[in-house]
Design a protein around this nucleic acid. Structure first.
Lengths: 184, 184
DNA sequence: TGGGTCATGTAACCTGTTACATGATTAG
DNA sequence: CTAATCATGTAACAGGTTACATGACCCA
């Protein structure tokens, strides 16, 4: 997955591992958290598969940096990946695993859990506000600026997702509060 | 993660790997897809850590089955896990990785992509309707039937999540259709 | 002189996925 | 007879996480 994400970024312009890390940090991190260690590993794999080519660029004073450029084979693979399979949602929501077993703890504690989740989502929403600016700056590298609509869609998703979580957490809190006075 | 999920199930009653697989298939699969191969591996790990104990149960005609029961140490670990850390959302949404790069394909194709996603979500929603019945049946094993509220919460999440996806996909389709007539 | 950024990675580990493998019972 | 269900796993692989490691430059 990350392999193809990196391949996609390289399709816009040639980059170093470090630059790729920056793009992830600024524009994709809210839906994909990439560690540098994995980025470098995947860049090597991309080269081995012939999907990208490495060019060492000497720098004054600093060690060489390795610029990676997508190859024609890589472009083909990117398109293949985009068309492969239908849209499938990942069936793995870690917080639900915890919520499922929350009955083992006290109700008050669990109410606090859901309130903390709401707070987490509000902070996340604020952080999301910074993303469009990065996206706009980055869209300068696009051959067709219209492609940035798709980037905007991912931000919309992030917002809708956080709002959904806040509402859901609220409904959980309501359920727990309404049952509070009852005999247990 | 799966380790603690299994531990949680064992906290309700002792089970075999096969029974655990059935519970996942019927009640948890929509937020966690567990393969039998991993279930058996984790059960071994649980035993090695002293969180669960295996008892071979001979059967007539069939090979022995291995019943796993949670240990006091395991119960402690379950509670530790539940209280560990705050609520964190996973920062990994595979479909967004694809959507981010959808600009490389044609608009018509992408509209179909989002329509297929909506269809996928509708099927998912229908499948979700079967879960509450399983949950109810399974709640017979609870010391306190009130604990099933938390199970219900996970189903609510699933529904809200699917509705969110359908709406988001619709907004994406609208965006793409409104730009259709324009010069590219 | 000390912290942040640029820049690159390795190694070990954990966890999830895919493929393969076996064999008995039971219901249609 | 044959397909489904019960019941158990192994092996190899893929991909993500954590910890560790290095070194120079630049700004305060």
């Amino acid at each position: 997955m990350l392999k193809h994400g990196i391949l996609g970024l390289l399709s816009y312009k040639e980059m170093t591992g470090y630059e790729i890390m920056l793009v992830f940090r600024d524009s994709l991190r809210f839906f994909w958290n990439a560690h540098t260690s994995q980025i470098y590993r995947e860049l090597q794999a991309l080269e081995e598969k012939g999907w990208a080519e490495k060019t060492p660029v000497p720098q004054q004073g600093k060690p060489d940096k390795n610029l990676y450029a997508i190859s024609p084979k890589g472009r083909k693979e990117l398109l293949r990946w985009l068309s492969e399979g239908g849209p499938e949602l990942e069936a793995r929501v870690p917080i639900l695993m915890k919520v499922f077993f929350l009955g083992e703890r006290g109700r008050e504690e669990n109410i606090r859990y859901f309130m903390a989740l709401q707070e987490y989502c509000r902070i996340f929403l604020e952080a999301l506000d910074q993303v469009p600016a990065h996206i706009e700056a980055y869209s300068a590298y696009l051959d067709n600026p219209e492609k940035a609509v798709y980037w905007q869609m991912t931000v919309d998703y992030g917002r809708k997702n956080m709002q959904m979580h806040i509402q859901w957490a609220q409904s959980c809190i309501d359920k727990l509060e309404s049952g509070k006075g009852e005999v247990v």
